[in-house]
Amino acid sequence: MLTTDSVRTRHIGEATAQDIADQWNSVYPAMREILDTVIAAQCGAQHPTADVPALDKLRRELGQLDRGEFTSCTRSTGEFSVYSALVRVQEVLNVTSVGAPEKGSIYRLAGTLADVDADLTAQWRAEREPGVPAEAVDPGDRDRADSELEHAERGTR
């Protein structure tokens, strides 16, 4: 069971951590059941349509996230990661049937994680790039921008 303490960091406050933990704890059993069902069906299928080892790894990683023990690399300490949780939840959504009653709750969790991840990314940029707006800048017309870059590189403007 995911706790607020597992989610809270210096960048994620108590209220946000509690919201993530509450949503996660309400939907994690359903995600686990979905994966169990899909894995069992794929193992029994004559011609599997999904990568069973990848689904098994996903199930294991969701369990690690649930316990606050997920490691994104061999050197990191076990913890809950908003970005890693978002990626795994999206992967669960990819194998969830359209009519699954839990799908809306899983999407809501994904939305919350995506919003928090976007906020964390903006905070990270603001800390590392002072004076640069934390908001993503609209790139505008990419073709025009490429053209202007080419002119600048050639010195024709």
Rank of each mutant, 00 (worst) to 15 (best):
Met1Ser: 09
Met1Thr: 05
Met1Glu: 06
Leu2Pro: 01
Thr3Trp: 06
Thr4Asp: 05
Thr4Met: 06
Thr4Gly: 02
Asp5Tyr: 13
Ser6Ile: 06
Ser6Tyr: 11
Val7Met: 05
Arg8Asn: 04
His11Gln: 14
Ile12Gln: 02
Gly13Phe: 10
Gly13Gln: 06
Thr16His: 00
Thr16Glu: 05
Ala17Met: 00
Asp19His: 10
Ile20Val: 09
Asp22Phe: 11
Gln23Pro: 01
Trp24Cys: 09
Asn25Val: 09
Ser26His: 04
Ser26Lys: 12
Val27Met: 08
Tyr28Pro: 00
Tyr28Lys: 00
Tyr28Thr: 00
Pro29Asp: 07
Met31Pro: 13
Thr37Leu: 04
Val38Ala: 01
Ile39Phe: 08
Ala40Thr: 06
Ala40Gly: 07
Ala41Pro: 04
Cys43Glu: 15
Cys43Tyr: 10
His47Asn: 14
Thr49Lys: 12
Thr49His: 05
Ala50Thr: 03
Pro53Gly: 01
Ala54Trp: 07
Leu55Lys: 02
Asp56Gln: 15
Asp56Gly: 10
Lys57Asn: 13
Leu58His: 02
Leu58Tyr: 02
Arg59Asp: 02
Arg59Ala: 08
Arg59Ser: 04
Leu62Asn: 00
Gln64Val: 01
Gln64His: 05
Leu65Cys: 02
Arg67Pro: 00
Glu69Gly: 09
Glu69Gln: 13
Thr71Asn: 10
Thr71Val: 09
Ser72Glu: 15
Thr74Leu: 10
Thr74Ala: 14
Arg75Pro: 06
Arg75Cys: 12
Ser76Gly: 08
Thr77Lys: 14
Thr77Glu: 14
Glu79Ser: 14
Ser81Gly: 12
Ser84Pro: 00
Ser84Glu: 11
Leu86Asn: 08
Val89Ile: 09
Glu91Asn: 14
Val95Gln: 04
Thr96Trp: 04
Val98Trp: 12
Ala100Trp: 13
Ala100Asn: 15
Ala100Phe: 10
Pro101Cys: 01
Lys103Glu: 07
Gly104Tyr: 12
Ser105His: 07
Ser105Lys: 08
Tyr107Glu: 12
Ala110Phe: 03
Ala110Thr: 02
Gly111Tyr: 05
Asp115His: 09
Ala118His: 09
Leu120Glu: 11
Thr121Gln: 15
Gln123Ser: 13
Trp124Phe: 12
Trp124Tyr: 13
Ala126Leu: 02
Arg128Ile: 05
Glu129Ala: 12
Pro130Cys: 01
Gly131Asp: 08
Gly131Asn: 06
Pro133Asn: 12
Pro133Gln: 15
Glu135Tyr: 06
Val137Phe: 08
Val137Asp: 11
Asp138Ala: 08
Asp138Lys: 07
Gly140Met: 02
Arg142Leu: 14
Arg142Gln: 10
Arg142Ser: 11
Arg144Asn: 03
Ala145Cys: 04
Asp146Tyr: 05
Asp146Arg: 07
Ser147Asn: 12
Glu148Met: 12
Leu149Asp: 11
His151Gly: 09
Ala152Lys: 04
Glu153Ala: 10
Glu153Thr: 07
Glu153His: 13
Arg154Val: 05
Thr156Asp: 08
Thr156Arg: 07
Arg157Gln: 10
